[in-house]
């Protein structure tokens, strides 16, 4: 056997876990692994149909379906799904314990990467649908920045999810508690509405919520004519680095304990 470089080993491990995961999750369905893409796509489409076609023209700068896509895809998939997937990564860790190449960290990283790539694919497919069916031009104004901020949301989801995963062995309730907070977060994270629609002083208060910033930054970079009154990449950056630091620290301290269960 020839020796692999560390990066080649990591990629092999991630790919192997990815294949195993999509089989575990979807192989019982008729459409099989296609559900890996269909699952988030159907969810985002439901939101687009529920909220995007009510004929609300108040945005002015963007067609409603596109606004909903640019809000729900990052929030529900890139942030929320990454967080959830990472927070229960320890469930499958036990089944992979007998493979020396796999650590819990590989499972966490794999899940984050898979969710992000899935979200990108779903975004492209739905965007294409918008262009084809509705005649909307869905292409982000600054495409790389849009994807970049989507990526930061995934990293944030990975960080929070990892922290949750590392402490759920202390009390299972923590996972439950986190799930309960998802719903209110949806209302205060500038998902249904742009921050420009919120009057002061509430706008200032909501701006303390870190998740508002990537949502607004994505909007700014996706829509040519939208300019956010609050978006602050530096504030978001502090939160991101802080969360990632905390996540890696809790992981380092606790992974053996979590795996030992």
């Amino acid at each position: 056997m020839k020796r692999r470089s560390l990066i080649a080993l990591q990629l092999d491990v991630i790919f192997a876990i990815f294949i195993r995961e999509i089989h575990r999750k979807f192989s019982d369905y008729k459409l099989g692994t296609l559900w890996a893409i269909l699952d988030p796509m159907v969810m985002v489409m439901v939101f687009v149909i529920l909220f995007g076609f009510k004929g609300r023209g108040e945005f002015g700068y963007v067609e409603p379906p596109l606004f909903i896509l640019a809000a729900f895809l990052p929030f529900k998939v890139m942030w929320n799904q990454t967080m959830k997937e990472c927070s229960n990564a320890n469930n499958i860790a036990r089944g992979l314990k007998s493979f020396r190449q796999i650590r819990l960290f590989d499972i966490l990283v794999t899940r984050a990467i898979v969710v992000f790539l899935t979200a990108l694919t779903v975004g492209v497919v739905i965007s294409f649908g918008f262009w084809w069916v509705l005649g909307i031009d869905p292409i982000p104004y600054r495409i790389l920045e849009t994807i970049f901020y989507g990526g930061t949301l995934t990293i944030f989801g990975f960080a929070i999810g990892t922290m949750v995963c590392m402490v759920t062995d202390i009390a299972k309730e923590i996972g439950k508690l986190i799930n309960i907070t998802t719903m209110p977060l949806l209302f205060i994270s500038a998902v249904f509405f742009p921050m420009s629609a919120i009057p002061e002083p509430y706008r200032g208060w909501l701006a303390y919520n870190p998740l508002v910033h990537p949502m607004e930054l994505i909007r700014e970079n996706w829509f040519y004519r939208y300019e956010s009154p609050v978006s602050d990449p530096v504030y978001w950056g502090y939160w991101l680095i802080g969360a990632l630091f905390m996540a890696l620290m809790t992981y380092r301290i606790r992974w053996r304990k979590v795996m030992a269960l």
Partner: peptide, 13 residues
């Protein structure tokens, strides 16, 4: 086959 490939991939074969 897929299970074999899984371990083979992990082992770098």
């Amino acid at each position: 086959r897929q299970n074999i490939r899984f371990v083979a991939r992990l082992s770098g074969r």
